[in-house]
């Protein structure tokens, strides 16, 4: 296959794979939650209820596309597109296997962080443009939460960067041939995972949309496919963060030879997605101020300790 065709295959594979994955993840999460909560979950449409993913898509697409008269129309429509764009762009740097990636940027890690930061705008603008008090509160919360957790998210990865000597994700994977970074950078892994949950605002960090307090938070006024894009954006975020954790801390595509590398990458990401779902099933939601103080008082010091220890080790033994 010529290179030019190959790259298109990967681009479209990534696009449809991730969006399709997000759609199936909605069904999968509900099944898994059902399993953990002593009930069945959706099991009516198609085998194991998997048709639900398609039924959902059809429903969302055929709903009336409505903008509330009091909303700021342009921003209101732009906000949900931003999160999807940002998340999809984030997938561009994920290496699924050796040579199997859209692009191997030498600043891939920074690019990924930049893209997840852009997603904050989506939530913020959606909350503001709705001109709804619940949405506004949700937008405010998300601004504070995501901006704070952004800080540790970036910092927690610097240990990995020091050890591998590169911002390129391919290099980072290759640097884990002997030992995964989850062992040498356990603190970094912990902080990155928690910050990643906060970034994708999933329970227990779903304060921007906390349904028990803010109805639906920033997307209270959204319906139809615009709501669907927020949904897909959230699930894309879950997949993206899971694949990033797999890549950075669990050796990405590396694994025993009897199966292709992309399988190992997929398996690791899949297990991490399951972990995300389990978290949602198990943990209550902390209060907004508790979440913030947890971030600044525990997460930030942990990250800094990790950074300094790693730096000292690298300096001393000269990795």
């Amino acid at each position: 296959m010529p290179d030019s065709v190959f790259i298109y295959v990967i681009i479209f594979g990534t696009l449809f794979g991730s969006i399709g994955g997000a759609a199936v993840l909605v069904w999968f999460e509900r099944r898994l939650l059902g399993f953990w909560q002593d009930r069945l979950g959706p099991n009516r449409v198609g085998p194991f209820g998997i048709g639900l993913a398609f039924a959902d898509i059809i429903k969302l697409f055929t709903k009336e596309d409505w903008v509330p008269p009091f909303a700021d129309k342009f921003v209101f429509i732009f906000a949900p597109t931003a999160i999807m764009m940002a998340m999809l762009l984030g997938f561009a740097v994920v290496p699924y296997g050796p040579g199997l990636y859209v692009v191997d940027l030498n600043i891939a890690l920074l690019f990924f962080l930049g893209m997840t930061s852009l997603a904050v705008y989506s939530v913020l603008l959606g909350g503001l443009a709705s001109r709804n008090k619940f949405a506004l509160l949700g937008g405010l919360r998300s601004a504070a939460q995501m901006v704070s957790y952004e800080v540790f998210m970036g910092l927690s990865l610097m240990g990995v960067v020091m050890l591998s000597g590169s911002f390129s994700l391919v290099d980072i994977v290759n640097a884990q041939q002997d030992v995964w970074f989850v062992f040498s950078q356990f603190l970094g892994f912990l902080v990155f995972t928690i910050a990643g949950i906060a970034e994708s605002h999933r329970l227990p960090f779903d304060l921007p949309e906390a349904e028990h307090e803010l109805v639906a938070g920033f997307h209270t006024e959204y319906s139809g496919m615009k709501f669907g894009m927020f949904m897909v954006g959230e699930y894309l975020g879950v997949i993206l963060i899971s694949s990033m954790i797999a890549t950075i801390f669990f050796g990405g595509w590396l694994g025993p030879d009897f199966l292709p590398p992309i399988f190992w990458f997929g398996l690791k990401s899949f297990l991490l997605v399951c972990f995300f779902v389990l978290l949602r099933a198990a943990i209550p939601r902390p209060r907004y101020d508790q979440l913030m103080s947890f971030g600044w008082k525990i997460m930030l010091p942990l990250t800094l300790v990790n950074l300094m220890v790693t730096g000292a080790v690298v300096l001393w033994w000269g990795y």
């Binding site: 009930r39 329970l203 028990h212 939601r285």
Partner: peptide, 16 residues
């Protein structure tokens, strides 16, 4: 009560 403090699962057990 568990649900209102954001814990999703217990309510299903209690309702069962």
């Amino acid at each position: 009560y568990a649900q209102d403090v954001g814990q999703m699962s217990p309510v299903f057990y209690m309702f069962a």
